[in-house]
Amino acid sequence: MALISGLVGCFVVWRRLSYYGESIAHSSLLGAGIGILIGIGINFGVVFICLLFGILFLWLQQSKALSSDTLLGVLAHFALAVGIIVISFNKIKIDLHAFLFGDILTVSITDIWGMYIGVLIAITLILSNWSSLLLVTLDEDLAKSEGINPLYVNILLTTIMTIVVALSLQIIGLLLITAMLIIPAATARRLVNSPEGMVIVATLIGIFSVVFGIYLSVEMDLPSGPSIVVVSSILFFVSHMFGLIAKNE
């Protein structure tokens, strides 16, 4: 998970998608509720609803009548509200606390295999479309003029983000997923001078944050998700402080 969050996080930072990541995370609660309700399980429910959310957003965005952040604000909170209602049905027993803040103890062996497969798929998709993704990030019209369909690339990126959100949900929790995406990438931004470099450094920071965060949570009996986010945030502040000092010298 740490492997992929740095990679995807870079695109989130470059394309200013952090609010979009937040929204996908919001809609995952609805996904989990529906997944249990119709008996396909939490993971499939989350992937299904988040993908639906992403496609709905891309479709509505085409009309350009509303700005993206307004549109996301409507969709995300609609999904969240319906999600809470679905979960409040008596039949569903769900640990809302674990869902919001993440609980590594709820992860089973099957989940871990699911994560391996999801990460592998996401990394393969990104690396095999690397230059197209980069070009669409820079300028959609420029990409079009060179025969790339930005809509296809955007759907791809939405899919990958959905996979990542679904994977991180159990460990990090809904409220902090976006942090896991953007903090390592934002930390890396000051330290590098190429997009590839940013991805590598962000991934390393992501891995370190997850490993050290989980170590802290085990040793000091802290919740896992917040520990990971605190570790990566400290790295962020340290890197920016060094950046400022280096600038002044």
Binding site: R15, T137, L138, D139, L142, S145, R189, N193, S194
Partner: peptide, 15 residues
């Protein structure tokens, strides 16, 4: 095709 400008140049490190 030459577009007017790129709008992400601040957030992406690239030579």
């Amino acid at each position: 095709y030459m577009p007017q400008n790129l709008d992400v140049i601040k957030t992406i490190p690239m030579k």
